[in-house]
Amino acid sequence: MVTPHSPRRLPPLNAVRAFEAAARHGNFTRAADELSVTQGAVSHQVRSLEEWFGFPLFERHKREVRLTQKGETYLTFVRAMLNELHSVTQMVRGKTTEESLCISVPESFAVNWLIGRLGSFTERHPELTVRLTSQNQIDDQGKVVGEEGTHWVDLRIRYGRAKWPGLRVLKLFDEQVFPVCHPDYGAGQLRELGDLSHHALIHDDMQMSWVSWLRSVGAEHIAPPHGPAFSHSHMALQAAAAGLGIALARSALAHDHLKSGALVRPFDMSAPAEHGYYLLCQERMANLPKIQAFKTWVLEQASAFSTGS
């Protein structure tokens, strides 16, 4: 245990900085350009860090370097600590500089709920540049690799059951599930649930099934007919808005469609959604000012949505 009077056994910090830059660029030369040193200096610093650990952090190839498994693990914590050090330093200096906030979000939630509300966050925090990325674009370490380079996810919004070990988990809200369709769909023929048997039902791979929903509202005797199927909820909602049939919608994703009149609810029945929405982040990053800023804002938005205000 480290006491206030015992020295911490830390690796050489310049070597840690060189390691992070080399890992981000995948190349010692580009890391050297960023740090304004020679390629040989970066190589030497990384080698000294590997000797300090007693095992390699990179696999060397002709034109690039790749992290070993232990290197990937170490990089996750190094990135978090460097980000935190930067943010806290700026805060202590009383300065704010433009900083990015990368959030991994399910596509349907981003399209149908989050993006339309982001304007108020950027007005409140003009120093933060928000980058949204699909949850399918990140790897296990929280890294996004794209044409513009490598980015690291700061926050994640997920739909599930609060089982994400090793992460700080904060619940945003639960939802209700109900049928929706175009205002003119059915032309007055949708008076009771039994009428569903005579219309096309849109199926959503990311949503509660029609069989489960009908069972939840006590109408398991109704056999849902076949209809078009979609892999994402925002596609299913667009199909319903285009008049292709009746879709099951979660309240958060359908909210703006219902408000605009693009979709209507033909029945009053609803059932609780199987999961909820959660905000996730690394424990080490939970107290960063930019993380706290987004958390405060999104909880306000979630509370307003849940209460209908």
Rank of each mutant, 00 (worst) to 15 (best):
Ser212Lys: 15
Ala21Tyr: 03
His275Ser: 03
Asp139Phe: 01
Pro126Phe: 02
Arg24Pro: 11
Glu192Ala: 05
Ala15Phe: 02
Ser43Pro: 11
His125Trp: 04
Ala187Met: 15
Asp205Asn: 13
Pro224Ile: 10
Leu170Gln: 05
Val42His: 06
Thr122Ser: 07
Glu51Phe: 09
His86Leu: 13
Glu20Ala: 06
Glu107Gly: 06
Leu114Pro: 02
Pro266Thr: 07
Ser216Gln: 07
Ser212Gln: 13
Thr97Ser: 05
Pro183Glu: 09
Ile115Ala: 06
Ala247Cys: 05
Ile202Thr: 03
Cys181Tyr: 05
Phe28Trp: 07
Leu288Gln: 12
Ile157Asn: 03
Glu20Leu: 09
Ala252Glu: 08
Arg60Ser: 05
Arg63Tyr: 10
Thr76Glu: 15
Ala247Trp: 06
Arg158Glu: 09
Val144Leu: 09
Asp268Thr: 15
Ile222Pro: 00
Glu274Ser: 06
Gly160Thr: 12
His203Met: 01
Phe55Pro: 02
Pro106Val: 04
Val2Gly: 13
Pro126Gln: 07
Leu288Cys: 11
Val46Pro: 01
Asp154Leu: 01
Ala23Gly: 05
Ser309Pro: 11
Ile222Thr: 08
His182Met: 04
Phe121Ile: 11
Leu244Val: 13
Lys290His: 07
His125Phe: 00
Phe55Gln: 12
Arg158Leu: 09
Leu201Thr: 05
Val92Ile: 06
Ser197Val: 10
Ser231His: 05
Leu244Met: 12
Thr38Lys: 07
Pro289Asp: 06
Gly186Ser: 00
Leu244Thr: 14
Ala302Trp: 12
Ala252Ser: 11
Thr73His: 15
Phe55Leu: 05
Ala18Phe: 02
Val298Lys: 00
Phe53Cys: 02
Lys259Met: 04
Thr133Phe: 14
Leu13Ser: 03
Arg63His: 07
Gly194Met: 12
Gly218Met: 05
Arg168Ile: 14
Met91Val: 10
Ser43Glu: 04
Gly54Cys: 03
Phe77Gly: 07
Thr150Arg: 06
Met235Thr: 15
Arg93Asp: 12
Gln176Tyr: 10
Gln39Met: 08
Arg284Met: 11
Leu258Lys: 06
Tyr159Trp: 11
Ser197Gln: 10
Ser309Val: 09
Ser303Ile: 13
Ala262Ser: 09
Ala236Val: 08
Pro228Ala: 01
Leu128Glu: 12
Gly119Asn: 10
Phe305Gly: 02
Arg250Glu: 04
Leu280Asp: 03
Thr96Arg: 04
Ala240Ile: 02
Trp297Ser: 08
Gly188Gln: 03
Phe121Pro: 04
Ala18Tyr: 03
Ala249Gly: 01
Ala41Asn: 11
Phe109Thr: 04
Thr73Tyr: 14
Asp140Pro: 15
Thr296Pro: 00
Met1Lys: 10
Ile246Asp: 01
Ala252Gly: 08
Arg168Leu: 08
His234Val: 06
Gly194Ser: 09
Gln141Met: 12
Lys70Ala: 12
Ala241Ile: 08
Ala219Ile: 12
His151Asn: 01
Asp268Ala: 13
Gln69Ser: 14
Ser48Arg: 10
Gln189Lys: 12
Arg191Met: 13
Asn112Asp: 06
Lys143Gln: 13
Asp174Val: 15
Glu127Tyr: 06
Pro228Gln: 11
Glu51Cys: 14
Gln282Ala: 12
Val211Lys: 14
Glu127Val: 12
Pro11Thr: 04
Gly160Arg: 01
Leu237Phe: 00
Lys295His: 10
Pro11Val: 01
Val65Phe: 06
Ser260Ile: 06
Gln189Glu: 14
